[in-house]
């Protein structure tokens, strides 16, 4: 690990000014991802500005009936927060699907958004990687791609974003609030992470020195009917092969979809808001067959790699399973559909 200086920030403006003025500086939150990257040699900042003690640790009500979550709210606290559990169960479940209990006690809301891909090649500095070392190539393209992208990838990078929390936030239309050298910005979480294109070293639209201060969850009364399901190679403490976040607004008949919010994880360089699937379900009964058709509409442009074509049927089945969990009172037979 390369030596670095350490400064503990006492106010956000000063932290932003310090990092903005130093090209080799980085913010430090809990460090659960960054410290690993320092050990692995993926990044080597010469100054860490520790923002973990800034007073950004509140969950507060907003005027529109939503919640404003401070960037330093720990994943464990956000998952257990009574308002999150009651009003945004999809977010609580997504948080609890990630990492382990002892990591969730450390990891922060802002840090979770900024965690980087677990692509095995990105994490191994002995291999080429355009995300880690721009211009060196992509070892995954011809490599082991079980965990890689099927949508939105490029010839430069096929990595996926590892966050569960961000997938739920994408479904909820959350807004990332930042403080930069030029002041505050509000960025929809669906625009916050980038597709790789020819610049996969840039995970997000953040500028150097721009600090996440909060995430706002808009008021969405029907998000009480929401759920997150994560499919992985072992039952717990593993990254997603595919994950699905769904919130459903049903008509009075209890089965017809008035509005749906769907986001997918484990399949793209960013949390994938599934607008085609939402469009396909709108106005239709929430049957298994309709869910499968909706999922297929979303993955119609998928480009699976050598080892991950299974993700297309897995998205289909997982979406159907989540919706089945969310529509328990559907008259018998209506969830039976053609496979």
């Amino acid at each position: 690990m390369k030596p670095f200086r350490y400064e503990r920030a006492t106010d956000a403006e000063h932290a932003v000014a310090t990092v903005a003025a130093h090209p080799g500086a980085a913010f430090l939150g809990a460090g659960t991802n960054l410290v690993d990257h320092l050990k692995l040699g993926i990044t080597a900042p010469d100054l860490l500005v520790d923002v973990s003690r800034l007073p950004l640790d509140e969950v507060a009500e907003t005027a529109d009936g939503g919640l404003r979550v401070g960037a330093n709210v720990r994943n464990a606290d956000l998952a257990a927060h009574p308002a999150v559990r009651a009003r945004y169960p999809v977010l609580s479940q997504a948080l609890l699907s990630g990492a382990s209990g002892q990591l969730r006690n450390l990891a922060t809301t802002g840090g979770n958004l900024l965690q980087r891909t677990r692509c095995a090649y990105f994490q191994d500095p002995s291999t080429p990687c355009n995300k880690r070392d721009p211009g060196t190539g992509c070892a995954a393209l011809e490599g082991w791609t079980r965990y890689h992208a099927i949508l939105g990838a490029s010839s430069h990078c096929v990595a996926v974003h590892p966050s569960d929390m961000a997938v739920a936030m994408a479904a909820l239309d959350a807004v990332v609030v930042t403080l930069g050298p030029d002041g505050e910005r509000r960025i929809p979480v669906t625009d916050f992470h980038r597709l790789p294109g020819d610049a996969p070293h840039r995970d997000t639209v953040l500028r150097h020195g721009e600090l996440i201060t909060a995430v706002e969850l808009p008021g969405l009364p029907w998000a009480t009917r929401s759920r997150y399901r994560k499919v992985r190679d072992r039952a717990s403490y593993a990254f997603a092969l595919v994950s699905v976040a769904v919130a459903l607004d049903l008509e009075d008949d209890g089965r017809t979809v008035r509005e749906a919010r769907i986001a997918l994880g484990g399949i793209a360089h960013k949390p994938w808001r599934a607008e085609r699937a939402e469009q396909a379900l709108r106005g239709l009964p929430a049957t298994e067959e309709n869910c499968r058709t909706a999922a297929d509409a979303e993955t119609a442009d998928a480009h699976p790699l050598r080892d991950n074509a299974f993700k297309i049927p897995l998205v289909r089945n997982t979406l159907a399973a989540v919706v089945r969990d969310l529509v328990p009172e559907t008259p018998s037979g209506s969830l039976e559909g053609a496979r």
Partner: peptide, 19 residues
């Protein structure tokens, strides 16, 4: 490497001592 850090279980291998 799990300990109780300020009352909560936490991994210590990814936490910088200075922080």
């Amino acid at each position: 490497c799990t300990v109780l850090l300020d009352g909560r279980r936490a991994t210590t291998c990814l936490a910088l001592a200075v922080a």
